[in-house]
Amino acid sequence: MLIELKDVCYTYGTGTVYEVSALDHINLQIGEGEFIGIIGHTGSGKSTLIQHFNGLLKPTSGQVLFEGKDIWEEDYDLRSLRTHVGLVFQYPENQLFETDVLKDVMFGPKNQGLSEEDCRARAHEALSQVGIPEDLYGASPFDLSGGQKRRVALAGVLAMDPEVLILDEPTAGLDPGGRDELLREIRFLRDKRGITVLLVTHSMEDVAQYAKRLLVIDNGKIAFDGAPKRVFSHYKELEKMGLAAPQITYIMHALKERGLDVDLRATTVEEAKRSILLALSQRASEGR
């Protein structure tokens, strides 16, 4: 197992009047090359959870293992862990600070202790992967557009060549075009580099389209863990948690209720189209 969480609890403000339990006995195993979507309503503990994967937060109790080793053992090198597990925070463009784009992306590799040349090569590679054209490398990161800034920030993490990439709502505030492009790039990275991706999002549609496994966090606990289609079949329970299944799920259930024999597990527009056309042609042939 790549990452393993054993009985992890996390409490904010331990020992004060403001004590809040954010994670409650989380057990979780993440294998190499997985594409996991993490969903939960605001304050469910998803941001707290992902900060445990690279040792930014120390669990109040329980263990976090990376490649079988407890990351909170005394002589564990947390800084090297953070180069293996890349974490892209919400609105990552707020972390840009350098005078030009290339230098900013080189910040991570430099901290890894790589030579200037290697840093540059890594930065070039990462920037081309997120689709930043070369003539922008010398520009100030503060002069870029919102979408470009976000890509540069993403490249800043990619340049560290992580095995695991965690993204906290990477598409928040992007227009639909930018959103699809960014997610496609992330999927491409996973397919090409074989990295493990954890994607925190609010969009069920994104999860349905990209993730192979879905974690639903509710109130600091894992409510569901499984293939997105299986999880979405519990859409009534999801609604109680303040979440919802993809719109397609609702349409398919409504069609079924009206007597059209469609596949309820369809979650994307493409799947739904196929299923509906199939059901319609079946009905037509039966009618004859």
């Binding site: 953070r82 972390q95 890894q112």
Partner: peptide
């Protein structure tokens, strides 16, 4: 921001005075 930079390998807690001051720039 501190957490985001730590996630990029930044080190705020070690080194001499100059190095520490420099590490505050990000």
């Amino acid at each position: 921001i501190k957490k985001a930079q730590i996630a990029r390998g930044a080190d705020f807690d070690s080194g001499g005075l100059i190095k520490r001051l420099k590490s505050m720039i990000p």
